[in-house]
Simulated scan of single mutants.
Amino acid sequence: MKSGKFYIIFIILISITACNSGKSVSYKSSEYKRKKEVKPPKPSREDNHKIAKEANSVLKEAYKFLGTPYKYGGTTSSGLDCSGLVINSFQAIGFQMPRISRDQADQGKEIKLRDAKEGDLVFFSTSGSRINHVGIVENVKNGEVFFIHSSTSKGVIVSSIEETYWNKRFVKATRVL
């Protein structure tokens, strides 16, 4: 008898969950085959404000190192290299970056240089074919990108991508924020 009650309850549950709205759905073959392109939602005003605030915090931290001498492998105010500057600057917003510039180049998404904004990263190859230098976009004026970085000869400075040296060695830009 118990198995009979169980069977009845089971049938009732199946019929409840199997109910539909009674509407029939049909697709034209052309609609069914067409793939919809899904676009990510546009960032809200609050999202844009948060991103701008984070970029400002990253740059504020980077500015603290202006004039700091270059030191290979350095990550402190007594001396740092280009990737050390990026690590320290992004730690200000709680974002952990890889130690070397070529690994930092894999963070975020690649963007076109003309779309660069404050807080984006720019990558260079100064000796050969692979990335070995990074800077943080500091400002963009009339399409000219300025970036803060640790130069081997001058320490932490702001440079322009329009300078012949950097322009010839530019590889890519990424947006982490």
Rank of each mutant, 00 (worst) to 15 (best):
G94A: 12
E110P: 03
K53F: 10
L121I: 11
V86S: 10
F90R: 10
K117Q: 15
K71D: 08
E61D: 07
S127E: 07
K53A: 14
S101C: 08
D103F: 08
P98L: 10
T126G: 02
S83L: 10
A55L: 01
L59I: 15
A55H: 00
S101N: 09
M97Q: 07
G74P: 10
G79Y: 10
N142M: 11
F90I: 13
E46M: 10
K53V: 08
G94F: 11
S77T: 15
H133D: 00
C82R: 05
Q107S: 12
D81L: 08
P43V: 09
K112A: 15
A116H: 04
S78G: 14
F65D: 00
R102F: 12
K64P: 01
G94D: 12
F124R: 05
T75M: 12
A116R: 06
A105W: 02
Q96D: 13
Q104K: 09
R99Y: 14
G119P: 03
E118Y: 00
D120L: 06
I93R: 05
L80C: 09
V86Q: 01
V134I: 04
S101F: 07
T76G: 14
G74T: 13
H49D: 11
I87K: 14
L85W: 02
S101Y: 07
G84E: 08
K109V: 13
D106I: 03
K64C: 03
R99S: 15
K71I: 12
G128Y: 03
S127R: 07
H49V: 12
L85H: 03
K117P: 00
D115N: 14
V122S: 08
G135F: 02
D106Q: 14
V58Y: 04
I136Y: 05
V140S: 11
T75L: 10
G119A: 08
I93Y: 07
C82N: 08
A52C: 03
S77W: 11
E118S: 10
P98C: 11
S83R: 09
P69M: 02
E138W: 01
F65E: 00
D115S: 11
N48H: 02
E138P: 04
L85M: 06
N88W: 03
H133S: 00
S44V: 09
N142Y: 13
K64D: 08
D47E: 14
P69V: 05
F65V: 01
